[in-house]
Design a protein around this nucleic acid. Sequence first.
DNA 1: GTGAAAGCGCTAACAG
DNA 2: CTGTTAGCGCTTTCAC
Lengths: 333, 333
Amino acid sequence: MTAVRPPTIIDVARRAGVSKSAVSRAFTGGSVSEDTRERVLKAASELRYRPSHSARSLKTNRSRLIGLAVTHLDNQFYPEVIEKFSGRLACDGCRVVLFVTRGEAGLEPMIDELLGFGLDGVILASSSHAAEVAAECTRAAMPVIMFNNVDTSGRLPGVCTDNELGAAIVADHLIGLGHSSIAIIEGVPDSSTSRERVTAFRERMLKAGLPDPVLRSGDYSSQGAAQATRELLMAEAPPTAIFCANDHMALAAIETCHELGKAPGRDVSIAGFDDVGIAAWPSFSLTTYKQPVAAMVDACVEGLFAEIAGERMIGETLRLPGELVVRSSTGKN
Amino acid sequence: MTAVRPPTIIDVARRAGVSKSAVSRAFTGGSVSEDTRERVLKAASELRYRPSHSARSLKTNRSRLIGLAVTHLDNQFYPEVIEKFSGRLACDGCRVVLFVTRGEAGLEPMIDELLGFGLDGVILASSSHAAEVAAECTRAAMPVIMFNNVDTSGRLPGVCTDNELGAAIVADHLIGLGHSSIAIIEGVPDSSTSRERVTAFRERMLKAGLPDPVLRSGDYSSQGAAQATRELLMAEAPPTAIFCANDHMALAAIETCHELGKAPGRDVSIAGFDDVGIAAWPSFSLTTYKQPVAAMVDACVEGLFAEIAGERMIGETLRLPGELVVRSSTGKN
DNA sequence: GTGAAAGCGCTAACAG
DNA sequence: CTGTTAGCGCTTTCAC
């Protein structure tokens, strides 16, 4: 059995009795007579012909492949983001090539990978090392955009939620409920999202004349948040409310409350950030600040396409407002 | 500002004072003298040269891109699978191109996409329409393998958990706990996983002399499972245990129990299948049958690589045993 | 071990 | 509207 090699544009041209160019035009939307187009399409489908992706990419310098770098798929926020990007990009005929960064390790080599797969552009939704990756991408003239994360060093475009606004609104909500002893569980310290949310929340409290909140690191992980929650709630004077820098940690905090026999929303209020799917489940009913993921993804894709086209739509970072979602994990003090 | 086009192999050759071939060899592991290799590598790094992916693919007919078709990213099982595949394939220098199938719609066009991106192979982890996609792939000589899903029509290779074994073990567990009135919430009826799990569970019950279990469809969705649970538990003679065809539905069933004021593990036992991350959370503490995801992914990748190499390692479907994980969502009747 | 040369399959001027 | 032609950047015989 000889390996049947796939039909090329030449096979189609021959069978349709036209030139390669005619076939190419028929497939790329060039101008061809209706008659030619039909014959080409017929021949192509008989031959089961599909244009070779690599040949086309080589010529056009476009692969319609977009890299998406993410971390922590166990944080439900990312699967949601991935799904949205995949759907959105598919509308433009593009596909997502996934780069899952495993914690701290393996990021260096990933840069080479990111640059070596002939991608048209890259979306950095990974929370750490963004700066390094970004710098390398710019040097390689690879269009990049940050998602849910801002480039503090350079001036890369990016899209994220207005974290400061969101955190302030959550703070107001908690304060309005009568809480004055509020703790914060932050994420990875050097991630922009965590920094912005924490800072804004804190400022709001100080502005309200409340004491500086206790700060614990949850490192954006379940275990970290659980540990922080334990320490917080078992202290001598435990806080009456805890603001977690994301839902992933807030969910863990709620789990920990149960473990300690404290009822979320009654004994202690827990608030998060993201509005991940699970947050709405009755078991958690988490009060949180909803990130406008769909709008963010749209803006991000448009921004990236602009970069690819050589323009620049987004100045530095586009910050979209979200929406407070009040559920029963927060209650009056 | 002229667009600085990326350096080609020729630029490197010139700078290193060697021929294109020498550069190519230095990068692909061909035989070159140590001296040449060094000069090439030096020139390349000075120029920030990276071999063009599309040019290389065109020549070698290998893109190192593997398609992964999945559904339901809100079912935590899939993000876990994606992450594992991404990591595993990265070890072999390959990357995942994602194809998220949005329910029933958009599968037809997706086949074209799958075949049109110059992928080296495709992993079908999508639960529905697998047969159609598979058939088209085989016709196009595209290496395919099924994951967690068996090809009933053709004879495509695939890897999945031994669903029948698993379901039987879960049945035994429940029966051993003294349950005799057990209901089943199945997934998408025409998915092989659901069928196999349901059939085996049922058989086991009959074999134990128990009445034929009530069967409800949850359609592998949270809403479906919640609805089914409601109907089941509000019936005149509610079952004392419910077996859900996957964790995603079992979790929803547990939520629904709370909604109805029934304590899982006491008032009614709930068991799932998968052992998704959340299943272990204290709030759910779901008894389930753990799919050996890592081993499945390894086997799947090996099988696919064999297909790509023109061999066939896996006869039809490889069924790996999992492991019962007993938690507190199931208890004595 | 090394270079010259021939394409991989396609698109995009350029003539006609 | 159509065909001819010239590469895109790389790998790989094939001689040397």
